[in-house]
Design a protein around this nucleic acid. Structure first.
Lengths: 185, 185
DNA sequence: CACAATATTGAACACTGTTCAATATCGCGC
DNA sequence: GCGCGATATTGAACAGTGTTCAATATTGTG
């Protein structure tokens, strides 16, 4: 209940509109009760992000590329990722605004959800380089996707509102195409 | 004075430790006075980020690559960028945590500072593809650097604490090398 | 019905951003 | 030195925030 309420709060009021009191009252409880379920607001946000990662995974999985060409698959995956960020911007933002207090690593179940998403990229990248080792493909997938993510982040946060700018999709295509060429070589 | 105080506040207490009252009292004033100088906390953060962008530019400029090889230059630039993020983590974080209220675009002077930083990447990328147009080099520089930035972000925010992970520098090298290969082709 | 185990409350504490009437300080002409 | 207008500065007030915890309410069971 609390997490559902938190989700709609974030989507309607933005990530700054999230507060423990609002979440509590949205489900007919008081703040005190919320603190019996969650250790802190950080804990609530972490669990909310867990759900968002699940939703993102399902979003990507539900929109597979039609063609079998690896290049097309990767570009389509990037477009689908960008579309999610553009559609669920507030929730997607919370995903990366949450910064664990230093030394406070992310829990394993969270990293597992992250791995699952990266797995989709690995699968799309694999047919492109059968000659490479499993580990190298995994590393390449993470590097490439971190790159696509970076483009998406800077675009959504308006750090790319510069003269002569391309669309997010065009930038992602450029990154993927050039990276693929190099990775295949 | 206020911006200097804000800087040291962020570096000592982290980005969450920044508050208008703390900044004001750090320079011997009250909150009210601070609001005669800055429109809002958002305004203060934006100006703080402007200084950080200047500092980042100087940091990169003060550490030029020794070799003339474009590949080395780009890798060195990435390493220097990563080093800044690791050294001034809190300040660097504020740079991207600040999200302008929707419709509220970043001011031109801020975008100009961003362009200046991107210019360093363009300069490093240029000798690699003289046959390409000016605009294409600019676009490639932005795409590549957004990618390096994405790697850096996910690393610092612990989104890459997965099994079989590489260092930030290794990931950046992988991205740059493969992108370069594709871009040269 | 009683009693122990849960569940829930709401007030309290120490913060936060922001505003604005009231006050203090300053520079300058006389 | 004095007065006065222009700045500069204050600090209390408002509405919110995360978090805690003694006090209360509700529940299931013997």
């Amino acid at each position: 209940m609390a997490l559902e309420a938190a989700e709609s709060l974030v989507t309607t009021e933005g990530y700054k509109g999230l507060s423990t009191r609002k979440v509590a009252s949205a489900i007919g409880y008081t703040v005190g009760t919320l603190y019996l379920v969650f250790d802190s607001q950080e804990d609530l946000v972490l669990q909310l992000n867990g759900r968002t990662l699940d939703a993102l995974y399902e979003w990507l999985r539900a929109r597979p590329a039609l063609s079998g060409d690896p290049g097309n698959n990767l570009r389509h995956l990037a477009e689908t990722y960008i579309a999610y960020a553009n559609t669920e911007t507030a929730r997607w933002n919370v995903l990366f605004e949450y910064i664990a207090a230093e030394g406070n690593d992310l829990p394993d179940w969270y990293l597992a959800k992250l791995s699952k998403v990266f797995g989709l990229v690995e699968a799309a990248l694999k047919p492109l380089a059968d000659h490479r080792g499993e580990q190298e493909i995994q590393q390449a997938a993470r590097v490439l996707w971190a790159g696509v993510h970076g483009i998406c982040t800077l675009k959504i946060r308006h750090r790319m509102d510069l003269a002569g700018g391309q669309t997010t999709e065009q930038m992602a295509h450029m990154l993927i195409d050039n990276f693929m060429l190099g990775f295949q070589a």
